[in-house]
């Protein structure tokens, strides 16, 4: 489990940030993206994927959450 931060970039896309390793990557897809259920598997543009517990969609980004690593692209 690692603390990650999800923020919105200028173009409106979601950006994933892992402070511990200074890793920034854009999120290509998010499993659940409805107002009630938001989260699940995050696919990153660097090939990695993380899982966050689905919650109600946060009112404001960025938000820090706990995430589990599913597939590791970053060596």
């Amino acid at each position: 489990m690692a603390n990650i931060m999800i923020r919105q970039n200028g173009a409106g896309g979601l950006v994933f940030y892992l402070p511990k390793r200074d890793l920034e990557a854009s999120i290509e897809s998010i499993e659940f993206d409805t107002p009630e259920k938001w989260g699940g598997e995050l696919k990153l543009d660097n090939g990695g994927s993380y899982y966050i517990d689905p919650v109600a969609r946060p009112a404001r980004l960025p938000i820090s959450v706990r995430a589990r690593r599913l597939g590791a692209a970053e060596d």
Partner: peptide, 12 residues
């Protein structure tokens, strides 16, 4: 960037 990210989250 670290502190900027923090302020973005905490203080918007």
């Amino acid at each position: 960037n670290y502190i900027s990210r923090h302020m973005e989250e905490k203080y918007g």
